[in-house]
Simulated assay, not measured.
Amino acid sequence: MEIHVNYFAVIAGAILSMIIGAIWYGPVFGKKWMEIIGVDPADEEARKKMQKTAGPLYLAQFLLTLFQVLVLAHLIADTSRVGGLERALWIWAAFVIPTMAGAVMWTNQNSTLKWSRFLIQGGYQLVIFTVFGLLLQFWK
Rank of each mutant, 00 (worst) to 15 (best):
S116D: 10
L66S: 03
T107L: 01
Q68S: 15
A22E: 02
I11F: 10
A22L: 05
I3F: 13
D43M: 06
A73P: 14
D78H: 08
F29R: 01
L64W: 12
I3M: 13
D78C: 08
Y124V: 01
M1H: 12
Q137V: 01
W92T: 02
Q68C: 10
F62Q: 09
G21Q: 05
L126F: 15
M1T: 09
V5L: 12
K32C: 01
R87C: 06
A103M: 15
K32S: 07
W139Y: 12
R87G: 00
P27M: 13
I23S: 06
P98C: 01
Y7W: 15
A42M: 13
M100Y: 09
R87S: 07
A88K: 04
K31W: 03
A103D: 14
R47V: 07
W92Q: 04
W106I: 15
K114N: 00
F118M: 07
E2V: 02
A46D: 00
T130H: 02
L89P: 03
D40L: 07
A73R: 12
N108H: 11
A46S: 11
I3C: 07
P41V: 04
D40H: 08
F95T: 04
L57I: 08
V131F: 06
V69D: 08
G133Y: 07
L57N: 08
Q61Y: 15
R81N: 14
M34Y: 05
R117W: 12
T107N: 05
I36V: 06
K31P: 00
Y58S: 10
F129K: 05
K140P: 15
M1D: 13
I3A: 14
T112G: 12
L16C: 04
M50H: 08
N6M: 06
F62W: 11
Q61L: 14
T65R: 11
V5H: 14
W90G: 12
N108T: 04
L63I: 08
K140Y: 09
L75R: 13
A77P: 03
I37K: 05
T65F: 09
Q109M: 13
T99K: 12
G133Q: 02
W139T: 02
